[in-house]
Structures are given as structure tokens and as C-alpha cells.
């Protein structure tokens, strides 16, 4: 797959799940930029990701055809990406990936890992994510950076990191909110991409093992 296209997919996810910034969102949602994102999705689907291709064909990602305007994104985040409410779906990995004996809470192993990872790579996290380095915006941002730097490491990171999105999507789709499908679709793209990458890595490992035998 084209690493830059994957970087763009994660870049859009980063911008969508981070606290909305008016100018940045307007620039992202501009026709030319958003077309680039949709083209990237189509290209990835066509070239190497049958799961994503099926999703596109089924129409389940139609919510992505027209990006929400800034006010809709801001308002959705204000209702759902804030903590402590019945309709909260804060996109932080620690709140979704725990073993059955653990209570979901901020600052879990994924947060400590992401903090250590950023530190060991000489990266500085935005202050607003200092205590939630496993926020989807950070993880997506990290994926985008890695795809622009080393696609193999990026695939490794992505295949490890984003499996929690299945549970996050369940929480998103349960919301009583018309705009939720736009965010679900953004997640669906990543989940499909991750599945393809994991599948590809699995095949590569299997091939290597067969060759050794």
C-alpha cells in the first residue's frame, strides 16, 4: 500500500477525534483535501484491502462523502468526547482495552506505553494529551508520522494499537446522535485498514515459516 495514503487516512482521523480547531477543520474539510482523503481510501481499498473495498461498495461509509461542517464536529465532540456523561465516548484506549478483571480507567498500560514510546522517539506530545497519550488523536497522529517515516514500523504499530477501536465503535454507534455515523465511518476505515495490515503481516509470517521449513 502507498504509505502516504495511509498516512492521510490516519491524519484525518487525528484531526476528527482531537478537540476541533476551526481553521484546521475548515482546511481539512475543503473539497480538494477531503477528495484526497476519499481518493486515498478508494486507492487503498482497490489495491490491497478487500475489507475496505467491501465496506465502500456496501455504502456503509457513505457518511464520509461529505465531511461534517466545523460546528457539527465541535458540537458532537462537546456532547460525546468529554468525560463523565452517560453519552460520553471519550476516544482514549485505556477506557476500552482492559482485561476482564480490570476496571476501565485513564492511565492504563496503553497510556504508559504511548508516553514511553513518544519519549523514546524524541517526540513531544501536545500538552492537552499529556495524561492521555493513548487518545485516538495521538495514536492516529503517531501512525501518520510513522507512515511518513518507516512504513514497516508503521504497520507494526497500527496492527498492535488499534484493535480497541472495535469496542469504541460499539460505544459510538450506541449514541443517540444523528452525526455518529460520520465518526463511525472514520473508525470503520481504520478498522478495515488494520485488519488488512494484520492479515498481510500474518501472511508474510506464514510464508516465511513455510520457506524455513
Amino acid at each position: 500500500m502507498d504509505a502516504e495514503k495511509k498516512a492521510l487516512v490516519f491524519e484525518v482521523a487525528r484531526a476528527s477525534f482531537a478537540p476541533a480547531e476551526r481553521d484546521a477543520w475548515i482546511a481539512l474539510a475543503a473539497f480538494s483535501t477531503w477528495s484526497g482523503y476519499l481518493d486515498a481510501c478508494s486507492s487503498i481499498a482497490r489495491d490491497e484491502c478487500a475489507v475496505l473495498s467491501d465496506l465502500l461498495a456496501s455504502g456503509e461509509l457513505d457518511a464520509l462523502r461529505h465531511p461534517l461542517d466545523y460546528e457539527a464536529v465541535r458540537s458532537f465532540a462537546a456532547r460525546h468526547f468529554t468525560g463523565g456523561l452517560p453519552q460520553s465516548v471519550v476516544p482514549v484506549e485505556s477506557l476500552y482495552r482492559t482485561n476482564p478483571s480490570q476496571v476501565p480507567a485513564y492511565g492504563g498500560p496503553s497510556a504508559r506505553y504511548m508516553g514511553d514510546l513518544a519519549s523514546s522517539m524524541g517526540l513531544e506530545l501536545p500538552a492537552r494529551f499529556a495524561s492521555t497519550p493513548d487518545h485516538l488523536a495521538v495514536e492516529a497522529g503517531m501512525a501518520a508520522l510513522l507512515y511518513r517515516s518507516d512504513a514497516n514500523l508503521a504497520d507494526s504499530f497500527v496492527s498492535e494499537r488499534f484493535t480497541w477501536l472495535a469496542d469504541f465503535r460499539l460505544a459510538l454507534v450506541a449514541l443517540d446522535d444523528d452525526e455518529r455515523m460520520f465518526f463511525c465511518a472514520l473508525v470503520d476505515v481504520i478498522v478495515a485498514l488494520v485488519e488488512c495490515i494484520r492479515s498481510g503481516r500474518h501472511e508474510a509470517v506464514s510464508t516465511n515459516n513455510l520457506e524455513r521449513k
Binding site: L117, M121, G122, G141, R161
Partner: peptide
């Protein structure tokens, strides 16, 4: 995120495992 990570930074990468 439009930038890239240099070799030194990439050397600091570690998988979750």
C-alpha cells in the same frame, strides 16, 4: 505530522510487546 521522524527517533521505536 506532516513531517517525518529521523533515524534517531525511529531507533527509539519499541513495540508494545
Amino acid at each position: 505530522t506532516a513531517g517525518v521522524i529521523g533515524a534517531a527517533g525511529l531507533a527509539g521505536y519499541m513495540s508494545f510487546d
